[in-house]
Amino acid sequence: MFKYQVDEHTSLAITEMRHAEALYNVIAENRHHIGQFLMFAKNQTLEETKSFVETSLTRFATGIGVPTCIWYDNQLIGSIGLHISKANRSASIGYWISKEYEAKGIMTKCCKAMIDYGFRELDLNRIEIRAIKENIRSRAIPERLGFKLEGTLRQDVQLYDAMADTIVYGLLAQEWLY
């Protein structure tokens, strides 16, 4: 089992099937909050959450993913994961957090932990974070952590009844100073 202690209150642990119901409950309680920019949250069922966990575990077992739940004082509050391209020694980070825990620095610390893990343990050369242009809180994280703004992918993502632009941030191992 993968577990990473972020700080005295926060840890990351591989998402396991035994976490599926708790993960689903956090999604369900935060449908509007998470669903503003991540369409899966609006109608996610428990069965879909279990399927996601199963797929994530397969990705972890094959070395192309590091799916983790974010735990704060032993309560599941969100999710963060690496999506890895072994051939390119690169990965992207995806994340979301319960509204109650937003704007407390938790996600920035979790991203920092994932970046450290990716560069130091997985020997990645590049990590990317993408965010919907209007998702200012999500975009602030890579900006705070020293990522470079690499561009805008115009009308890149279907977001309900419209297409949304995605902002791309990148960080190279040689740039990681933390």
Rank of each mutant, 00 (worst) to 15 (best):
T10F: 08
K86M: 04
M163I: 00
S92K: 07
G65H: 08
A20S: 11
E29W: 01
M107V: 14
A103D: 09
S85L: 10
Q155C: 00
P142H: 04
I167L: 08
M17C: 04
T45D: 08
F2T: 04
K148W: 05
E100S: 05
Y169C: 02
W96F: 11
K50I: 02
G35D: 04
S138N: 04
G78K: 11
L177R: 14
E100G: 02
I70Y: 10
G105Q: 03
E29T: 00
R126D: 07
I132A: 07
M163R: 12
H33K: 00
L82I: 12
I106Q: 05
T62M: 06
I14Q: 09
H9G: 03
T10G: 03
R139L: 08
R154G: 01
Y101P: 01
R154L: 00
L171V: 10
E150V: 02
L171G: 06
D156I: 00
T58C: 10
H32S: 02
M1H: 12
Q5L: 09
W176K: 10
Y72E: 05
I80A: 15
K109L: 07
V6H: 13
T45L: 10
W71V: 05
M39D: 09
E54Q: 05
H19N: 11
T15N: 10
I106C: 04
E16H: 13
Q155G: 00
Q158W: 06
T15I: 15
L145M: 12
K133C: 02
Y24S: 06
F2K: 10
I115T: 15
T166S: 03
N135M: 01
K109M: 08
G146F: 13
F119E: 09
R18P: 02
A91L: 11
Q158K: 13
L177E: 13
M39W: 08
N88I: 04
E8L: 10
Q5P: 09
I93T: 07
N125T: 08
F37R: 03
E54P: 02
I14K: 06
N88K: 06
I115H: 15
I132C: 03
E121R: 15
L159C: 05
F60E: 06
S138Q: 05
Y4H: 13
H83N: 12
L57S: 02
L82R: 11
R130P: 04
L149G: 01
T58Q: 10
L171W: 08
E102L: 01
L122I: 09
S85E: 06
F147L: 01
T108R: 07
G65C: 08
E134W: 06
H32Y: 02
H32M: 00
L159N: 13
F60H: 10
N74M: 07
L82H: 13
L57W: 03
L76M: 12
V157I: 06
E134D: 15
I97A: 05
S138M: 01
G94D: 07
T108E: 12
I132H: 14
R144Q: 08
F119Y: 14
A13N: 11
D123T: 12
T58I: 09
I84E: 03
I132Y: 08
K112T: 12
I84W: 06
E47A: 14
Y95Q: 05
F40D: 05
K99L: 02
E150G: 01
R89I: 01
D156M: 00
G63L: 02
E121C: 15
G35R: 02
L23F: 15
I27M: 07
A22M: 14
I64N: 12
H33N: 00
Q158C: 07
Q75V: 14
G118T: 13
W96S: 01
L122P: 14
H32E: 04
T49M: 14
R18G: 09
D7S: 05
